[in-house]
């Protein structure tokens, strides 16, 4: 265009660059909470202690205003014939497994959100509706969620559930570590009701110590593995078992945080917006050069 200088182009680029930089700084501010407090809480689940009474299922539903029914109806053990998963109607379920050779007693495994230290859902959520709180809970914010269900695709434990049958305000449902109860100084509902205290509530650091001690004292009883100590970078809920965890349907997971690779790619692409801005400048350069060369060619011909 006549009368325009190259400076115009540079100026425009600079303005866009500044805008983009502005975006990046506010991203940092609005990012979801992902606090890893030194004394975050956790639960140690000892599957060898659990008796499969399913009182925790009842307590959980009651604490979360889900239809729970009578407590004694949970004595029905026929539910154990199939393996259940936490869902929209129950945020925690207990499954039963044969303990194998040396005992007549079955192993019961309570399943719920593991409350990862580096949660995939927190990293994945498009609007940052998930957050890792100071007390270790990974919670979900109904005011933000758009229902995209990326958290469900991301979760390595396949925990979040979605209310597919709701047309308006369907929710993501998962264990919230009784965030509202613990805020008031109460114990999580399942921990409070457990008759045998198969669920020990305490700081994660102390629970790891206790778990190690239990394994050390009873090496014949436990497998030497605290599930959740290192899996996906550590989880707030940890398990002890007398049987290899893969036989109890625990997923085989590495020690790297679930969102690790994804986040490093993201942060690589968006390292302070340098790559996109450089690409922008590069393309601008190419555009300018190719146009310029074309015009020189044309002039030469004329």
């Amino acid at each position: 265009m006549p009368g325009k200088s190259r400076r115009d182009f540079l100026k425009t680029t600079a303005v866009i660059g500044a805008g983009v930089a502005g975006l990046s700084s506010s991203t940092a501010k609005a990012a979801p909470k992902n606090i890893l407090s030194e004394d975050r809480m956790g639960v140690l689940v000892d599957t060898t202690v659990c008796v499969g009474c399913r009182n925790c299922e009842w307590a959980c539903k009651t604490a979360h205003d889900l239809p729970a029914g009578e407590l004694h109806s949970y004595e029905d053990r026929s539910v154990f014939t199939e393996k259940r998963r936490p869902g929209t109607k129950a945020l925690t379920v207990v499954n039963e497994y044969s303990s194998g050779k040396n005992s007549n007693l079955p192993l019961d495994v309570k399943v719920q959100c593991m409350h990862c230290d580096h949660p995939a859902c927190v990293s994945a959520c498009i609007v940052g509706a998930f957050s890792k709180e100071e007390n270790g809970s990974v919670i979900w914010d109904t005011d933000k969620c758009i229902g995209c269900r990326y958290c469900m695709a991301a979760c390595p434990f396949q925990v979040p559930a979605f209310e597919y049958d709701k047309a308006i305000n369907p929710s993501i449902m998962k264990c919230d570590f009784c965030f509202n109860r613990t805020k008031e100084g109460k114990l999580p509902a399942c921990v409070a009701i457990c008759p045998v205290e198969a669920l020990t509530y305490g700081t994660r650091t102390e629970l790891v110590k206790i778990a190690r001690e239990r394994i050390k004292r009873n090496p014949d009883k436990y497998v030497d593995h605290i599930f959740g100590e290192y899996e996906v970078g550590g989880t707030a809920w940890m398990y002890l078992s007398s049987k290899d965890f893969s036989e109890l349907d625990f997923p085989k997971l590495g020690t790297n945080p679930a969102p690790g690779v994804s986040e490093s790619i993201q942060h690589g692409i968006f390292a302070y917006f340098v790559p996109p801005v450089s690409l922008y400048a590069l393309l601008g350069g190419i555009m300018w050069i190719s146009k310029h060369r074309k015009e020189l060619d044309e002039e030469g011909k004329l």
Binding site: P170, P259, H267
Partner: peptide, 27 residues
């Protein structure tokens, strides 16, 4: 497609003001 697939379609504008820089989906 996104509009009909997300559970809360009326909140489709949320990503505009609620940002999560680590989310690939946000990007």
């Amino acid at each position: 497609g996104v509009f009909v697939d997300i559970g809360r379609w009326y909140f489709i504008w949320h990503p505009l003001i609620m940002w999560n820089g680590s989310s690939a989906l946000f990007e």
